[in-house]
Amino acid sequence: MPGPRTAEPDGKKRGGLRGAGRPSFVWSLPAVIFFAFFSLVPLAVAVYLSFTDYEGLAIQPPVWNGLTNWKAVLTDPSVGQAIFVTVVLIVLAVVTQVPLSLLIGVWAAGPQRGRAVVVALYFIPLLMSSAAITVLFSSLVDPNFGVPATLRQIFDLPVDNVFSNLLGNQWSAIGVVAFIYLWGASPLHTLIYQGGARAIPEVLYQAAAIDGAGRFRQFFNITLPQLKNTFVTSTILMVVGTFTSFDIILLLTSGGPNQGTTNLPYLMYNKGLSALNYGYGSAIAVIVIVLAMAVSLVMVRVTGYDKMQGTQEGV
């Protein structure tokens, strides 16, 4: 990479403040300090704690116990189970949230005034706390007082039907958790897609229309390719967000039935904070961090997002 000095063919100094064009490192200090203090330091502490025996007592500092926690974590069947649940939740999040957010986002990008009202309503979940949403859904899926009970009355269903025990078996419980994430998180991704779709230059559609492309052709040949970077951004947010999802599981299922909805972050809470084994919990936390970083790195590489290519070259 050529330096700024050689970039100027005549080697003359430019006027104005020295270094004004290119901020010095000092400018980034606030961000760096913030990041170091709230991300890197806690991360380092978690790594340290994962090699200790610590019960969270201020008067009894952590005691180094080498690889004890790590050996236990790596042979713990509940860790494997939790990774499985985590992956299932991520897959469900991507499979349900991407198409929904994409379609609604592109639709909402249109200029009609009515859409703005509908979209404003659709974004309401973004304003609500996920804890409140979960408590609400917890009442809704209650088999005796919630929606299942009403459905049973309306359609005269038998006492035991597909809706009567939603939190009682693993797959329907995972389904409910995924649905709440879909309901709560898809507005955010819709917003991202809406922004992305609005940035697509109108001339592309005009040119396509002249060439005789219909709505579907325009969507698949112009909108989708133009939204590639939006897609990558939104999906990475989605995947990493689901990786660390915890609140809904804590409030709705407590990881049950039979650990059926215990994902890695909930397992970390359960074994670390709740069972007061901070060393063990920290080891799980480190696994979460490593896996989440690996997944997002792979996604960035595979999609070519790191090459910083624009989608509008030549427009």
Partner: peptide, 22 residues
């Protein structure tokens, strides 16, 4: 019953089952 795994404790859960006579 058959769906106790979906019932939570609290005034709108199992205690309501008892309170409402379900």
């Amino acid at each position: 019953g058959s769906n106790f795994d979906s019932v939570k404790y609290g005034s709108d859960g199992s205690a309501a089952l008892l309170g409402t006579g379900k």
